[in-house]
Design a protein around this nucleic acid. Structure first.
Lengths: 119, 119
DNA sequence: TGCAATGCCTCGCGCCTTGAGGTATTGTCC
DNA sequence: GGACAATACCTCAAGGCGCGAGGCATTGCA
């Protein structure tokens, strides 16, 4: 209530896309990944743990990620890597994102320059 | 079930953005708008009536749209226009979308070319 | 006569992010 | 030595939102 909540737009599916994309470059553990997302988007996007951890679990259950435990300074970490199946999914998701982004931009500019505008 | 529904396609907030954007160019009625969205995105994006009509009603209730009734061939139509308040909202939504799209693309390309690489 | 298209509407399902909450260890500062 | 932040994992309830299906009425075409 009272909290307008008008933000948080345009983000459905984005966390999953970025998780796969970043993990494909370098295996990471959850906590690290959350900060990597923030850094890689220049602090523009930030997703909480309640968003990322469930995605990690689900993608692993689906065979798109695999994890191994690691110990570092007394803390255990679950380091995730992208499987070959996950890479395939990633490619599809990226192209899907590009199609959507292009479509939206097309619509936003629709009718802007009806004529070729040869100066 | 059985419908995989793996879609989940980056679309939250997009319908509202496109509704405001297209209506800002030209007043339209709901049915027309639904087809305009499809056309303006080259058939890439299509939103059902169950998605668009509620948005129209909400935006009007919020003062971002205004409507007037029109008769055409025995059918009545509700033609919506964007108010000045709606135009302000539209500008914000567009820039918000651009920031998100840029952030996602930044992340996807993160580390690709560390150096500027100006050919 | 029947069916598709036009034109409006509502409702419930299910997905997804958010935010808050919980646990445990390590490092830091006073 | 005690408090607190940071690290690192996890879960759950709430709410937003698109989707699909459904409903109603008229026009136009076959």
């Amino acid at each position: 209530m009272s909290k307008p909540r008008t933000n948080a737009s345009y983000l459905s599916g984005i966390p999953e896309l970025l998780v796969l994309s970043l993990l494909a470059r370098r295996p990471m553990y959850g906590y690290e990944l959350i900060k990597a997302i923030k850094a890689s988007t220049r602090n523009e996007l930030e997703f909480g743990e309640g968003c990322i951890y469930p995605i990690l679990h689900r993608l692993e259950a689906e065979g798109q990620l695999s994890s191994r435990e690691e110990m570092a300074r007394g803390r255990s970490r679950l380091v995730y890597s992208v499987t070959s199946s996950g890479r395939k999914q990633l490619a599809e998701r990226v192209s899907s994102w590009e199609r959507v982004a292009t479509a939206v931009n097309d619509s936003l500019r629709w009718g802007d320059h009806e004529q070729p505008a040869m100066a």
